[in-house]
Amino acid sequence: MMRAREILVAAVAAAAILLLTLAVPWLRFVFTIAIAKGITVLGILVLLRAGQVSFGHALYLSFGAYIVAFAAPFCPEALLLLPLAALGATLLGLVIGLFVSRYRDIFFGMLNLALSMVFYSTLEKFYSITHGTDGIRLARTTFLGMTLTPETQAWTALGLALLLAAVFAILVRIYLESPMGHGLSAIKTREARLEFMGISAQRVLLAAYVLSAFMAGCGGFIVAMATRQVTPSLAYWTASGELVFIAILGGTGSVLGPFLGAIAYELTRVYAAALFAEGWQMILGAVLLLVILFAPGGLWSILRRMARQRVGRDARP
């Protein structure tokens, strides 16, 4: 059964991440950021099901991160900051979603890009409030009342990231199986028919959009907790492009694709940057090119193909 195997893969991956983190401490930060991005990319995947590509979803991630940075001095509890970031991003997603869900394709993508850049400029220009490109240093936070040291905060961020990733992967999987989830690919192939069945295609897309903003807000919380410094670069258009990049790299066939893509992306980036300080983008570009050319379904499809061949071999007498 596909579902059982997905859960198994996810559990093994989570255990591997924890073990690797214990063995190689500097990987903890890499994995935490990767999972935060994976959660955000999960929202991009949902929108991709409807054939819509958002080139501006870093907006919601950065919005969540800045909410954490602004609120932490008044409310240091991590378990309150998380819902606050999620709620803020969700509300912003609802307001913007009401507008952008009326548009499709290139207009949808570009409007998202434009709005994220408006937010970026706002962060950069209002120095007295946001400290411009210097960003805001995250105040000391607590977890269940216990004050977190940098060390325990990093562990908290990773733990919450893994937990959120598991919860969202399950929820999105259930959602994609529902009529609302199937309605997304119906938008891609025959949007008009949905209307002639009494279903508002705009509302189907809006629900997906708000969900994606919600998850991106949670991603932003984790990024803020892990980096302890939020800067406008989180909202810059290249950050949004990176999310789309990860979505394609990981593949849209499974809810695990985004996490696979995000971890592969972050590790490639770290090692490529260490090997070629000036040319790491070129390596990333080459990796994506190879994936698009030889595995259009992303890394997830490669993994699945390998698993299937293995099963085929074992089945032979």
Binding site: S178, M180, M197, I199
Partner: peptide
């Protein structure tokens, strides 16, 4: 066909499979 039936009987339930 199931999508059309769901459109009539309850489309907006994200927890119920199609």
């Amino acid at each position: 066909v199931a999508l059309a039936i769901a459109a009539r009987t309850g489309f907006w339930k994200p927890s119920r499979p199609l």
